[in-house]
């Protein structure tokens, strides 16, 4: 177990190193930060001085080593726009994004399992066919379009739900304000969560359905029937547990992907999270903030994947983590 953990952590560090290299390498191509910093009235000498001061004239390797050294101390550069450490800016926005991802994950977990199981058990029912049809539509429509449609229907049309912002949040601690503590907060997070879930949910319903149908054909399900086990127990204990093994693997990767998808959702709903911030940073050519965002998102990806692999070992008794490490 420990050896496996150490191995996974080393792999994660390697991945992070590559992400930082890529993130840092593209910043040269994002335009001249000086233009955004000082405007047009400043003379060329002053510009050169500033460049020298910011270290922009150094060689790539020198800049990168400096960046890496600072990054290891938790310093991912200073945002040109906010004049604050980039990491601090991101961490302030992180809770809003994580709450959004959490809301979407909650929707996906709560809906995909029953819907997937139901469509697998009764593949010919009209409701199953409707769900499968709707899932194709859900996968096909881009998130931003779904989001705009939802605003059009539920905010503009019926006026049931607010169309933007986080609403009345409750402070928890530090930079963390939560949407899940009162009605207004919940009303604000419903639509963004559903919009964010709109692609993953159909994907998971289809995945669970396909896996479940295969498992239901297996000998051990037939054997469970021969033992006189009740159908609900066969479906939800014998079959579902075997169904979820591959689903967990895919799911872990998808949670990371959802953090990235928040860029679209947050922009449409003006959700004050990392994604929205990233889009603004791109508009302002706030390179340190862009690079820091890429690294933080990469970090979230790597952490979720590692955690999912560890969970997989716990759920699947045939995977012995100790043996994997050897």
């Amino acid at each position: 177990m420990l050896a496996y953990l150490v191995k996974r952590i080393f792999q994660a560090i390697g991945v992070m190193f590559v992400i930082s290299l890529i993130g840092f390498a593209i910043q040269d191509n994002l335009g001249d930060p000086l233009r955004e910093l000082v405007g047009q009235s400043v003379t060329e000498e002053v510009r050169q001085e500033l460049r020298e001061e910011l270290g922009l004239n150094d060689s790539f390797t020198k800049q990168y080593t400096r960046f890496l050294g600072n990054a290891l101390h938790g310093d991912l550069g200073t945002s040109y726009f906010f004049k604050e450490p980039a990491l601090d800016v991101i961490l302030k926005k992180l809770p809003a994004t994580l709450e959004l991802v959490f809301g979407a994950t909650l929707i996906i977990v709560c809906l995909s399992v029953p819907l997937g199981v139901m469509t697998a058990i009764r593949p010919n029912a009209i409701l199953s066919k409707f769900i499968m049809g709707a899932s194709i539509i859900g996968i096909s429509i881009p998130v931003f379009l779904t989001a705009i449609l939802m605003i059009y229907v539920f905010s503009v049309g019926y006026g049931w739900l607010p169309s933007f912002g986080r609403g009345d949040v409750v402070h928890v601690f530090g930079d963390w304000d939560t949407n899940f503590a009162n009605v207004d907060g919940l009303r604000h997070i419903i639509m963004p969560s559903f919009a964010l879930a709109s692609i993953m949910l159909p994907l998971f319903v289809r995945l669970i359905r396909a896996e479940m149908m295969e498992v239901l054909q297996s000998e051990y399900v037939k054997y469970a029937r021969a033992k006189g086990i009740r159908p609900w127990r066969i479906y939800f204990v014998h079959a579902l547990k075997n169904t979820l093994l591959p689903v967990i693997t895919v799911g872990g990767v998808q949670i990371g992907t959802m953090v990235a998808y928040t860029i679209l959702t947050e922009t449409v709903f003006q959700w004050p999270g990392m994604g929205f911030m990233f889009l603004e940073a791109v508009n302002r050519v706030d390179t340190p903030l862009i690079v820091a965002y890429l690294i933080v998102v990469g970090f979230i990806f790597v952490v979720t994947n590692t955690v999912v692999d560890l969970i997989y070992g716990l759920v699947n008794p045939t995977v012995k983590l100790a043996r994997l490490g050897a």
Partner: peptide, 19 residues
């Protein structure tokens, strides 16, 4: 089933639930 009349399947490698 399984109570008054029970069945033994062919391949024990796949009849028991792995999880």
């Amino acid at each position: 089933r399984g109570n008054r009349m029970a069945m033994i399947f062919q391949d024990p490698m796949v009849t028991l639930n792995p999880v």
